[in-house]
């Protein structure tokens, strides 16, 4: 496990439901301002509300938070938030591609889609983190990250408002770490 943290990552990919906003805010407000990896976040959100979430995260975050356009490059030290009503995929050339394909797991954006594509593109050179949430979206994607030897972190269900999402992942594989929000922040700051 220690070996994993020594390799260079291409991205940190995080997923959670709408209720994970406070956890994501906490992590981004305590992350080192010189954090060098890109952070890609897929959070369930209201379909028809285009603004508010990214502005809210910008207020808290030590890193710039971007709601990316299609085909935008992923760069280190920036946070990329999946736009409302679009799925967000990570391509092999480290660009973002968006899609209006069918709703998946009752969600668009779907966390599974983001994790699956990131796992395919980055394989062992990514960290996948699943946070608190009220449905199973993200569990299959996190399993794919695990299968492709990415580093996996599940928010400790004991620290979650709703445990469905982390528990669904725990039923599919054993993660590298089970951490509280503060533990996740400390881990990221140690990279």
């Amino acid at each position: 496990m220690q070996q994993n943290t020594a390799v260079k990552y291409k991205a940190i990919v995080m997923g959670g439901s709408a209720g994970s906003f406070s956890v994501v805010s906490k992590i981004l407000s305590n992350i080192n301002p010189d954090f060098k990896y890109p952070i890609v976040i897929c959070m369930h959100r209201l379909k028809h509300i285009r603004s508010g979430l990214v502005e809210g995260l910008r207020l808290k975050s030590n890193l710039p938070v971007i709601e990316p356009f299609d085909k935008e490059n992923i760069e280190g030290g920036k946070v990329y938030l999946a736009p409302s009503n679009y799925h967000m995929f990570i391509e092999i050339d480290a660009t973002i591609s968006l899609s209006t394909e069918e709703v998946y797991n009752h969600s668009r954006p779907s966390i599974d889609h983001t994790f699956m594509s990131a796992a395919t593109s980055f394989r062992e050179k990514m960290v996948g983190i699943i946070l608190t949430g009220a449905n199973k979206d993200g569990a299959m994607g996190m399993r794919e990250v695990h299968v492709r030897n990415g580093y996996t972190i599940i928010q400790d269900p004991a620290t979650c408002d709703v445990q469905t999402m982390p528990n669904a992942s725990l039923q599919l594989f054993k993660p590298n770490k089970l951490l509280s929000p503060q533990g996740i922040t400390d881990f990221l700051n140690s990279l």
Binding site: H48, R50, N85, S99, T100, E101, E102, V103
Partner: peptide, 12 residues
């Protein structure tokens, strides 16, 4: 092709 599934997607 991906079909649109909403009338008036992005009402603005």
């Amino acid at each position: 092709p991906v079909a649109e599934d909403e009338l008036f997607r992005d009402p603005s």
